[in-house]
Simulated assay, not measured.
Amino acid sequence: MTFKLESLKSNKGARKPKLRKGRGISAGQGASCGFGMRGQKSRSGRPTRPGFEGGQMPLYRRVPKLKHFPLINPKSFTIINVSALNDLKEGTVVNLDSLVKAGIVTSPKNPLKVLGNGNLKVKLTVQASSFTKSAQQKIEAAGGSCESF
């Protein structure tokens, strides 16, 4: 059997007739129409606009907008550019400890991240927690290797 658009029907009991409110006591929703006796929500028209909280400062106005949300767990790195690695000897293993001994990094509080600003002319094995794509390309173009942990 093939289905056609004109042959589709909703399930039995899925579509109930609309309640005719305010049309007498026998209709089931006469007089106050199920809205109670008095008050803001019983008046004609839409009772309140969306987000209205009875005069209290609504949630959409209480929360900060757009910028300046504080990051809960920000990632921070000790960053270094590829151009700073040109002073090292060829073939050395570069990590956070060796950079501190060489005096290139002064405050090694966070994991090392290598950025790709500048050019690299020395073949090095660089060990860092992360690399930018350009830094990785420049290290590998110079004949070195990138090891992330």
Rank of each mutant, 00 (worst) to 15 (best):
M37V: 10
K133F: 03
G36Y: 11
F149V: 02
G24I: 09
G143A: 06
K75E: 13
S134E: 15
N117R: 08
R23F: 12
G22Q: 08
E147Y: 04
S42D: 06
E140I: 08
L112S: 03
E90Y: 02
P111L: 04
K109P: 01
M1G: 14
C146D: 03
G91D: 06
L115D: 01
G22K: 09
V105F: 01
K67G: 13
T48D: 09
F131T: 01
I139N: 01
K101W: 00
T125Y: 00
I80D: 00
P108T: 02
G91L: 08
L112I: 05
N110P: 00
V126C: 02
T132F: 03
V122C: 01
N73V: 09
S32K: 14
S98Q: 05
N95C: 02
G116S: 03
V63N: 08
G28S: 06
I104N: 01
G13H: 10
S130C: 10
G55T: 06
K75F: 07
G13I: 07
V82K: 02
R61F: 09
F131S: 00
C33G: 04
A27D: 10
K89H: 11
P64V: 09
E90V: 08
K21V: 14
L59Y: 14
R20A: 14
P108L: 05
K113A: 06
Y60G: 05
T125S: 10
Q127K: 15
M1Y: 08
E6F: 12
V100K: 07
R46T: 13
P111K: 03
T92M: 10
S76D: 07
G30N: 09
K75P: 00
D87K: 12
C146K: 02
Q127N: 11
D97T: 09
L5T: 11
A14R: 12
K109T: 09
L96C: 04
G13N: 14
C33Q: 15
L8S: 06
E140Q: 14
G144W: 02
A14H: 08
I72F: 08
K138S: 03
A27I: 04
S83T: 04
G54Q: 11
M57N: 11
I72R: 11
V94Y: 01
L112H: 05
V100G: 00
S148A: 11
K41L: 15
L59N: 10
C146N: 03
P50H: 13
Q137V: 05
S134T: 14
K109W: 05
G45Q: 12
A128R: 02
I79H: 03
T106G: 02
L115R: 01
D87E: 14
E6G: 08
V93A: 06
V100M: 03
R62P: 03
K75S: 12
K41W: 13
S44L: 15
R46V: 13
G51S: 13
R38E: 09
G54K: 07
S10I: 07
V93S: 08
A84C: 06
D87S: 15
H68E: 15
V63G: 04
V94L: 05
I139H: 02
N110C: 04
Q137G: 04
K121H: 10
S26E: 13
P74L: 10
I72A: 09
G39S: 10
